[in-house]
């Protein structure tokens, strides 16, 4: 897909309450552009559910509970099927990392395992931003959140990166027919993936890296730049797994050091003063990129 081919149609009315420069809100806007009007949006409790108030969407929309988006979509999938209305309708579940990796993991796993035909996009901003920025299962090593603050004894998230929940691997292990990682900095790549997810029969999962300038302590104008640096440093890798086959969709020619990414965000302020932490992060990224064949 080329930029010129992207529809000028917008599926969100103006007046949505997202923070300026919100990566997750951009993700939704682009996803809906890729899917078009025959889409039902199941928006799991989280930032975006709080921004989509007062009739923002131009498509059928439900704000689900925190952990049951995929279960509700399961019911609609089978309900429309028995009523003969399933053809040509996209069911999109849009959820944050807390709703996906933590509280909603069970219902996501169940809906995938039952083979429901739906698209699940997790916008990952690496913490519970809607409730004020608490630590989640995808918060990276070192990051300051409101529940991993800087203190005299302990500072930031201490859980090693190897244990951070890798949703892509978890979903891929289910045998999900379409799994992809994406970034808001690469909109064409992301929208292509959304389209492929829609064409997939059965469950499709996209993990979308989405900058949160408010929660990360970054300049909102740098939302895209930060997301791009995450890819260019190798912290985020863009690929898709179709029926078990992994394909890198965005190659990085010469990876930048992780500090290039870290330096724009106040949540990593203390990491930049800690060479051990920087080394740990860099080592992890190097290993991961070697394993995935990114370089």
């Amino acid at each position: 897909m080329k930029l010129a081919d992207v529809t000028t149609e917008e599926y969100l009315h103006h007046g949505g309450m997202a923070c300026p420069g919100c990566g997750a809100y951009l993700g939704l806007r682009l996803a809906l552009k890729a899917l078009g009007k025959n889409t039902i949006l199941f928006n799991v409790t989280g930032c975006i559910a709080t921004t989509l108030i007062m009739g923002v969407t131009k498509i059928p929309y439900i704000h689900t509970l925190f952990e049951n988006g995929p279960a509700i979509a399961s019911g609609t999938d089978f309900g429309l099927r028995i009523l003969g209305k399933r053809e040509g309708v996209n069911l999109l579940v849009y959820a944050g990392d807390g709703g996906t990796a933590d509280i909603g993991l069970q219902s996501l796993s169940g809906a995938i395992e039952r083979g429901h035909d739906f698209i699940y996009i997790c916008y990952d901003n690496e913490s519970y931003m809607n409730t004020g920025g608490q630590r989640s299962g995808t918060t990276p090593l070192g990051a300051i959140t409101t529940t991993t603050p800087v203190g005299k004894k302990i500072s930031g998230e201490t859980r090693p990166l190897e244990l951070k929940k890798d949703m892509l691997e978890i979903v891929a292990a289910h045998g999900t027919p379409y799994v992809a990682s994406a970034s808001i900095a690469y909109p064409m790549d992301f929208m292509d993936k959304v389209k492929r997810a829609a064409e997939t029969k059965g469950p499709a999962y996209i993990h979308l890296f989405a900058t949160c300038p408010t929660g990360w302590g970054a300049d909102p104008s740098k939302t895209i730049e930060i997301a791009r640096l995450a890819v260019q440093t190798g912290l985020v890798n863009l690929f898709e797994i179709i029926n078990g086959e992994r394909r890198i969709t965005v190659k990085v020619r010469s990876r930048k050091p992780v500090t290039e990414y870290l330096k724009h965000q106040r949540r990593f302020k203390h990491v930049l003063e800690n060479p051990d932490l920087i080394n740990a992060l860099q080592e992890y990224v190097d290993k991961k990129c070697a394993r995935l064949g990114i370089d």
Binding site: S74, G75, F78, S107, G110
Partner: peptide, 22 residues
């Protein structure tokens, strides 16, 4: 259609989704 869900929380959630389809 029968939805053989993975928990009661999802049982009623799926029922809601089905009901919302009519």
């Amino acid at each position: 259609e029968m939805i053989r869900v993975e928990s009661e929380h999802s049982a009623l959630s799926a029922a809601c989704g089905a009901s919302l389809s009519g």
